[in-house]
């Protein structure tokens, strides 16, 4: 039959008609984007001020963590006279941050992954079902977002005590998953709603069950949303202090946020400012690196719905 499809003859890769100059061009922005209204200028100024302010704090924190205790306040903006890397050693060894860091890494990773896993399993059907009961269920999750943590600490404590899970990392894991689910389900439901239903129809014709469609088609497409949810959960759980403070008593089960809290006290008492800032850096830097690594995914996840 010699099916010669038309565009196969014309669309073979052709040599580029012109060679580049090797100099990358900037490209003139569209006239609309170039307009400088007063409001726009004001907005830009505000944004830049905010960025500078945050950068300044970060630089100050980083510099201070490398200074001697006296120098931190004597010369807040100067470079350290002597680079005191041993501040980090002091911080790390001074209050057993090693164990706390391990606890935090495992707890936060497990809780975030588990939350996003079951959150996605809940969010996908909620994004597709139009029934009244599914709307009520989604509403229930949304309401969960509005409940302040502080107001349910006592009932949560009683419940965990009943389960004999106070002062255990497993108990904290359950609490973290429970408190993270509402926002995760809400975020992912919104995200799944932006994905085209046409691909599910194609998958159904290709023979996929609902779960296979979810696993092989929708989940890969939802990756930016999944990464966003994961990252937001990791950051908030990494910094979580209140629940850890209430539920964890043993030093060996402390999370990093909790350990740093105790560490503040000790260092303040000793005026060990350099080590204190080193401790703060130990908490903040991993999240910063995580953002630098996965931040682009977050932006994709947050804007995908708007552009497609």
């Amino acid at each position: 039959m010699a099916v010669q499809f038309a565009d196969q003859r014309t669309s073979e890769p052709r040599p580029r008609p012109r060679g580049g100059t090797g100099r990358l061009r900037r490209g003139t922005p569209a006239p609309l984007a170039r307009r400088r209204t007063p409001l726009r200028m004001l907005g830009m100024a505000a944004v830049w001020l905010w960025v500078l302010f945050n950068l300044a704090i970060f630089v100050w924190m980083l510099l201070s963590s490398l200074k001697s205790d006296g120098e931190v306040f004597a010369d807040p903006w100067g470079l350290p006279n002597v680079w005191r890397f041993d501040n980090y050693v002091r911080a790390w060894e001074g209050s057993d941050l090693g164990t706390a860091t391990l606890n935090s890494v495992f707890l936060v990773a497990a809780a975030s992954v588990f939350t996003v896993a079951i959150g996605a399993l809940a969010a996908y059907p909620l994004s597709r079902l139009q029934s009244r009961s599914s709307n009520v269920t989604l509403m229930y999750f949304v309401l969960g977002m509005g409940v302040p943590l502080q107001s349910i600490v006592v009932p949560a404590y009683i419940a965990m005590a009943g389960l004999n899970m106070t002062n255990t990392l497993g108990g904290l894991f359950l609490l973290y998953v429970g408190f993270s689910l509402p926002f995760t389900v809400f975020l992912l439901t919104g995200f799944f709603r932006t994905l085209p239903t046409r691909l599910e129809e194609a998958a159904a014709l290709d023979g996929c069950s609902a779960f296979r469609t979810f696993r092989s088609v929708m989940l890969p497409l939802a990756r930016p949303g999944i990464v966003t949810a994961l990252l937001l959960n990791v950051v908030s759980l990494w910094n979580e202090t209140l629940l850890a403070l209430i539920f964890i008593i043993d030093d060996g089960r402390q999370t990093l946020a909790l350990a740093i809290l105790g560490f503040y006290g000790t260092m303040l008492y000793n005026s060990a400012w350099g080590a204190l800032f080193a401790g703060v850096c130990i908490v903040v830097l991993p999240m910063l690196l995580l953002y630098l690594w996965l931040g682009k995914n977050i932006m994709d996840g947050m804007t995908l719905g708007a552009t497609k």
Partner: peptide
């Protein structure tokens, strides 16, 4: 089998994976 107006190709799969997806399932 159906060809949709907008083709509904799976964007995360290669051409080979798109064509072979039914058989894989």
């Amino acid at each position: 089998a159906m060809v949709f107006q907008d083709y509904a190709l799976y964007p995360h799969m290669t051409v080979a994976e798109n064509i072979g997806f039914h058989l894989k399932v």
